[in-house]
Nucleic acid binder design. Structure first.
Lengths: 247, 247
DNA sequence: CGCGCGTTTGAATCTAGTCAAGCTGGGTGG
DNA sequence: CCACCCAGCTTGACTAGATTCAAACGCGCG
């Protein structure tokens, strides 16, 4: 079953042939898959292409929430509200599978082995949000951008692309909005990482030259400054490794 | 059924009497409910008391994720990983209900009307994370703290406490870590809001004097500066209300 | 009473935001 | 085919706002 394949979950033979329940849909770059306020009907799985999902508050301010790509599920954050709370736009031509949530629930009734597929989808969504929190809570701009690049790198490699060379599909502005930075800062930070020899940047093209170095930047700011989390409550110490003190 | 009551969800008579499946547990202030790496067995519902959940990365850096209180469910972010990815500590004496996840799943098999209880729990968790993202993505310290206070206020009022007068149960340091600010900035910002007459602060005691004013601070910085989201991509315009432009 | 933790407040520093100017590359129309 | 345009990107200069370091105060507790 194609769906299971994309999600990397095991599937049993009993459900082979149910593919017809879920239809494929194609979108061109720039098209909107769903909009805010629209009634929630289905989840989407990305087969190919790149997208961005944006929440828009009552005052019209936008906040980029995610950049779905191959194998990702989106729309899950609207399950509880029954209406989409965000909109997602195709950044490139892309093809998706629609998973009408109703069908999914029905299927999981009929096939007990699918029970945890729903849990799994939710779990993914939670992990996704957690990852985003990690980026936003990074100590400074360098760490945020570094984490963003590492995260992209890992997701690309999971989808079978190169882990070290890829193209950014979104604008600096989108990245900045996503990370809570101005787009100038994103641009400057990329230049700085380039200058430092950790990566190579040419417009949208990224080449991660020193992944390990870059990973170190995810925590420790460049100039040897303290990481921001030093401020965190050290309540609950000592931890398992008593030798390693964060301060 | 007490569980349903706490979660504000309807319950049918068919499940009355199943309470015994879920046991109550008490904790004293400072005790740890679960720790990182421990095997995931159950969710917890807060009956009374206040807690904080903290994630701890491989380097020992802490990040406050949540401050659960009456009616909140915690532990849900560990369902997919099978191990707790965070730890939660009691900030005051508190009593909880344990919901062994396995039992919950079994129950939902037996009683179809419970089907969406699980969805509901996940939905709450997603909304919680979204709320946290909103705070972290706020344009500046004032907005973050204002949103934090408003959010607390709403949660208190949902639990039957006063919406305008309450005690902070966590330290400035915890708040700072949660919001991505230094604890000095938190303290200063509270003082500034106090000075401005919007709230009254005395150590842990908070009194929200001008809720509406405070809510305005959630978006618009004090000195009439631009909101940070101005930077966001304005891709996808025009929106439904073409008159309202964010810029 | 004195110790320690949490809090407040001050002063200096520095990061990231803002404003502005110039560059690049892709697409359009003359 | 070339010139133009425009959105996106880069870079510089200045500044507002947050962090850092430091000192002092209040409060609870042994």
């Amino acid at each position: 079953m194609e769906v299971c394949e994309l999600l990397h979950i095991p599937f049993s033979v009993s459900i082979v042939g149910k593919d017809l329940l879920f239809q494929h849909v194609q979108f061109r770059a720039g098209q909107r898959i769903h909009t805010v306020g629209q009634q929630f009907v289905s989840l989407f799985i990305v087969i190919s292409g790149f997208l961005k999902t944006v929440s828009i508050d009552d005052l019209g301010y936008e906040q980029v929430l995610d950049f779905p790509m191959k194998g990702d599920v989106f729309g899950a954050d609207s399950i509880s509200t029954k209406r989409y709370s965000s909109e997602t736009v195709a950044l490139s031509d892309c093809s998706l599978i629609m998973l009408p949530f109703h069908n999914l629930v029905a299927l999981s009734h009929a096939h007990v082995e699918l029970e945890n597929v729903i849990c799994d989808i939710f779990g993914r969504e939670l992990l996704r949000k957690q990852a985003m929190l990690d980026m936003l809570s990074a100590p400074n701009a360098e760490a945020k951008v570094a984490r963003f690049l590492i995260s992209l790198s890992e997701r690309y490699s999971e989808s079978g692309y190169s882990k070290t060379e890829f193209n950014l599909r979104m604008t600096r502005r989108d990245i900045g909005n996503y990370l809570g930075l101005s787009f100038e800062t994103v641009s400057r930070t990329l230049s700085a990482l380039n200058e430092a020899g950790l990566i190579s940047v040419d417009q949208r093209a990224i080449w991660i030259k020193e992944p390990d170095m870059l990973k170190r930047f995810c925590r420790i700011p460049s100039c040897g400054l303290q990481a921001r989390q030093d401020r965190s409550g050290i309540t609950g110490w000592p931890r398992s490794a008593p030798g390693l003190l964060v301060n």
